[in-house]
């Protein structure tokens, strides 16, 4: 019965807290406490900085994935797409070195953003114009992008030109007012993402399309356009992640970004966004990405988990995190 017309009641404070919103952060804190207990080195500035910096790629891509998933889509191609756009970017920059020198980096960044957006557009158009399930479309493009990077590298790797390594290096290893650049980049990406998703008409429409496509259509929303744009945003996020990725190891290989799609989806779901679409939670997603990287870090720092069982323990922790969220929801 849904139609109880009782007088307005002020909900108690505890019930007004939205557990889905803060759940991931609670999990993060619990994990951090557990981390300190396992190994005091965990809380060292270097370790925390390393872990958070490493989670930047997944976090940035996952912000885009929050849009796609929120709009009722799914993108399995992000890992291969990262490898592909990384490869394109490096080859392009290498070819410009003779004429432009270090400025090739700027050109490469501009190009990779376009390529990322186009790759996302490609996914989006096949999904919306071709009316094919996003799961299948992106499974297909996942294979395509992976094959392209393998082809481009002949199965080996595509190294960044030596003259570019030093000028490009700070984009991953550098600091700005004490914060590593990748962390700042992911915070900026998340801020922009949150603004778009929560404070713009497009974000509103995105959630509406994911929550109920029919309602969206009957409300005059162009479902196809919204979905396609979500994929384009995903592509741009992949490109931003690629920009931070290239200076780290200075190469693209066929194993770049392998299985990242699963980490990205896991981060989004841990963050509280429903896989079936609807309301997206950008900050939860970012927390989810950090949680994943933190779990992996703790596995290495702990002395009592067999190297053979690491994956199992990670899986158990993720499932527990989801169960805690599930049951801490208001009844």
């Amino acid at each position: 019965m849904t139609d109880i017309t009782a007088p307005p009641v002020r909900e108690p404070l505890l019930q007004r807290i939205n557990w889905v919103d803060i759940g991931p952060f609670v999990a993060l804190v619990i994990l951090a406490v557990a981390g300190v207990l396992i190994n005091p080195d965990f809380l060292s500035a270097t370790n925390i900085t390393n872990v958070v910096t490493r989670s930047a790629f997944i976090a940035i891509i996952a912000v885009g994935a929050t849009f796609v998933i929120s709009s009722g889509g799914l993108d399995l191609s992000v890992g291969s797409m990262t490898a592909f756009v990384t490869g394109i970017m490096i080859m392009f920059m290498n070819s410009l070195v003779p004429s432009m020198g270090a400025n090739a980096i700027i050109a490469g960044m501009a190009l990779v953003l376009c390529v990322g957006a186009l790759a996302g557009l490609f996914n989006g158009l096949i999904v919306t114009v071709g009316k094919i399930e996003p799961f299948i479309v992106t499974l297909g493009t996942m294979g395509i992008f992976r094959a392209l990077i393998t082809f481009m590298s002949d199965g080996g790797n595509i190294p960044l030109d030596r003259s570019l390594r030093e000028p490009f290096r700070p984009v991953y290893y550098g600091n700005f007012i004490g914060f590593p650049i990748p962390i700042l980049v992911s915070i900026v990406v998340a801020l922009i993402g949150a603004f778009i998703l929560y404070k713009t008409k497009f974000g509103r429409r995105c959630a509406a399309v994911g929550a109920n496509e029919d309602v969206a259509r009957f409300s005059g929303i162009s479902v196809g356009r919204v979905r396609t744009l979500a994929f384009v945003i995903q592509g741009i996020c992949v490109a931003i992640a690629a920009i931070c990725y290239v200076p780290r190891l200075g190469a693209a290989t066929p194993t770049t970004g392998q299985l990242w799609e699963l980490q990205v989806i896991t981060a989004v779901v841990i963050g509280g966004t429903a896989l079936r679409g609807g309301k997206g939670r950008i900050w939860g997603t970012v927390a989810g990405a950090v949680i994943l990287e933190m779990i992996a870090n703790l596995m290495v720092l702990s002395n009592f988990i067999s190297e053979y069982l690491v994956a199992a323990v990670q899986g158990v922790i993720i499932i527990i995190a989801m169960l805690v969220q599930r049951f801490s929801k208001q009844p």
Binding site: A208, A211, I221
Partner: peptide
């Protein structure tokens, strides 16, 4: 099924 987003709050539904 087609009119309202049942899991969305009232104001966003109203102005969708």
């Amino acid at each position: 099924g087609k009119g309202l987003l049942l899991r969305e709050r009232l104001a966003p539904n109203l102005v969708l």
